[in-house]
Design a protein around this nucleic acid. Structure first.
Lengths: 397, 397
DNA sequence: ACACTTTTTTCGAGGCTCGAAAAAAAGAGC
DNA sequence: GCTCTTTTTTTCGAGCCTCGAAAAAAGTGT
């Protein structure tokens, strides 16, 4: 709790921590003394001229060398890893291009292990590595140990956590990229993205991260939130997943490309439609009425109905759009809102806010990092005696 | 925690409580002594012959007169209320027929107040009323204070909790009926319905209660889970809510009736299709191929696609079917499963279990009762110092 | 009656939190 | 430079909750 407060506030005084956490000054004093003795926190000379009378506040900060986390982001043809100090600063980062679709499971694992080894080796003065967070495009299990399915590789059910832990003996979590984006948004802009919001990644596929009541929402077994594969039109357009009528089959990169080029909606999805292709189509759509503009309208409609169905279950919430599709949202907003208006969400169709947020890679990494750091805060440095579980089961509600 | 354990176990000994809760014997001894002194628990002469050597166990039970809850269930043209003792036994029950659709908001409120007054008056020897639970068909707010929208009345946003609290000075909660059904199922059959399952009410409208990770799932602002108004076919059949293509517009009583009679799917929904009508149509569907059988197929398809979309978000989970439609599930199962197979849920399409559970009214009441009793356990008799909220906000995850 | 078994209570200790009081570390005023 | 004031931080004792160990209680078996 104290660690969380310090992480959030940066360099708070003990008094500030007390007011944020609601604990008394004496308690904070005792706890921070312990944590400083353990080398987790440190007093710093605050640069803030006090300007006030009275004993000056002593700023407290996280000790950057108390721990290190490794954050790995794996997406289509791209692998990226970084070491991050306990106070959240990036120490070393490394990026690689690879061809994920053609790699074997073992090659993929080896590549991950190798890049982790590299960035750790290049961080000789960092604290001990206590956690590795792997964010992947695709469906992970809810225990965050496996990649169940992913569009970036033909292999399924890859036990990333187990395999990497075998090598490094550091706890590993495997998380869905969009869930990490949601974490990052909450961290970056808690004003706008507080307890309930939805992050949607519009790219080759369509991903979603849902924050509900301040927690990332996951399914019962998997990371859940497979927004892109909700069925928009039963028996409709052919999706990359082999089914018909998924939202993605209307709003994914390949679907927009397919529609913009006037191809049949049951034509096999084309791989490798890049961001540039979509931007080019968007440019043409902005200048002239034609199949390009219609393609974005169709995409917007699918997204709108999908959101409407989502809102039927969880109520309307602010939306953050990420990815190349977000940059073309001006072409879709109208049809998105029109579609939502035809659903339960339509009650507040005007009030729903859409914001486009920047670089999805950065967001993914930041979310993964913050989650890993929070894990160290809550489970390593301040392990909870988990009786809350028992409370749960004995409660009815 | 102790109260929950006793409620669940019935007449446990102190040792049993200790093993269930995970607390030590000494702690249980101290807590139960306090609770007995307060008159909340009581030692009872257990009828169980000990049969074993050693000091015999002393059974502990909830003191039935420690408190009373009033459980009110409001559904289409029907109002029912009961007083229930602290140990869960029904003291007095009263049912009324009324015509909810034509009543004014004030009449509805007055009727509720009156029936509560009656059942309480007829329970002179009961303990103090400490909680009233109102379960209603329709959308309630997530704070459980208002009925936002309901198919049983044209009025919206009725502040049941405030208005009834004004009269009786007893805390009131207003909950969605299907959420209460889910609570009841978990209570009745924790083997089958443990942490993750879905209760679906197939009746005039279609309701859903979702249990996720052991908690009833609600939306950000409302009770959520408006399964019946997820859009199955954009621009499709006319729904009672005025929109087109809702699941309900294919699978609600009126939709089945409409299709079975060969009417146009855009024909205005007919009120008052009763359970008998549906049963009659089901009977005919079972004997001969024809529009009746097709109607159930269509209904099953809508439900299946709806479930598939739900599973895309939360993963597959066991399903409990309630209401008249459940009795005709044999006519729908095939098309339900076929539809699910065409969605993300299709991965485990065969493994998904469907069970039909009995009387929805009874389930609703029981869920409402258990929730009210749990409220008394956790908030009145053992109020928590709610710092978990602070923990939440200072955590990242 | 006595030994044995199992449940329940008692007792002292440890951990965490708090409020009140004391101590520390400045600025303000003379 | 000294004292007063203000604010932060620490110290101290108390209260609450939980636990383990030991003791007490209440039966059964012989």
């Amino acid at each position: 709790m104290v660690l969380g407060a310090v992480r959030r506030a940066g360099q708070p005084s003990r008094t500030e921590i007390a007011s944020v956490t609601g604990l008394s000054n004496s308690t904070i004093s005792a706890i921070s003394a312990d944590l400083i003795a353990e080398g987790i926190l440190a007093e710093t000379k605050s640069e803030i001229a006090s300007l006030k009378r009275g004993r000056p506040q002593v700023a407290i900060a996280l000790n950057a060398k108390a721990a290190t986390v490794v954050s790995v982001v794996l997406s289509l043809d791209h692998l990226s890893a970084a070491t991050i100090g306990y106070s959240g600063e990036v120490i070393v980062q490394e990026d690689r291009r690879l061809h994920t679709l053609s790699m074997s499971e073992e090659e993929l694992l080896a590549e991950c292990v190798d890049i982790i080894r590299k960035v750790v080796a290049r961080s000789p003065h960092a604290g001990p590595v206590l956690r590795t967070g792997l964010a992947v495009q695709g469906v992970t299990d809810s225990a965050a140990r496996r990649l169940l399915w992913s569009p970036i590789t033909p292999h399924q059910n890859i036990a990333f956590a187990d395999r990497i832990e075998e090598v490094f003996a550091v706890p590993v979590s495997v998380e869905n990229d969009c869930n990490m984006i949601a974490e990052a948004l909450r961290w970056r802009d808690p004003e706008r993205y507080r307890n309930d919001f939805i992050a949607i990644l519009l790219s080759h596929g369509i991903g979603m991260g849902v924050m509900l009541k301040g927690k990332v929402f996951t399914g019962t077994h998997s990371s859940g939130g497979e927004f892109g594969h909700m069925i928009h039109r039963p028996g409709g357009a052919l999706c990359r997943c082999g089914r018909h009528g998924c939202v993605e089959a209307y709003a994914g990169n390949y679907a927009i490309w397919r529609n913009a080029h006037g191809h049949d909606e049951n034509e096999r999805p084309v791989d490798g439609i890049g961001d540039e292709d979509i931007r080019a189509i968007a440019e043409r759509a902005r200048t002239t009425e034609g199949p390009e503009r219609a393609a974005f309208r169709t995409a917007g409609e699918a997204i709108g109905y999908g959101l409407g169905n989502l809102f039927a279950l969880i109520d309307a919430a602010p939306i953050a759009l990420v990815g190349v599709g977000a940059s073309a949202f001006d072409l879709m907003e109208r049809s998105v809102r029109q579609a939502i208006a035809k659903t339960v969400g339509g009650l507040h169709s005007e009030a729903i806010s859409f914001d486009t947020e920047g670089n999805e890679m950065q967001l993914t990494r930041q979310g993964s990092t913050m989650q890993a750091l929070a894990f160290i805060d809550n489970e390593v440095f301040a392990p909870q005696t988990r009786d809350s579980e028992v409370v749960q089961s004995s409660r009815i509600a």
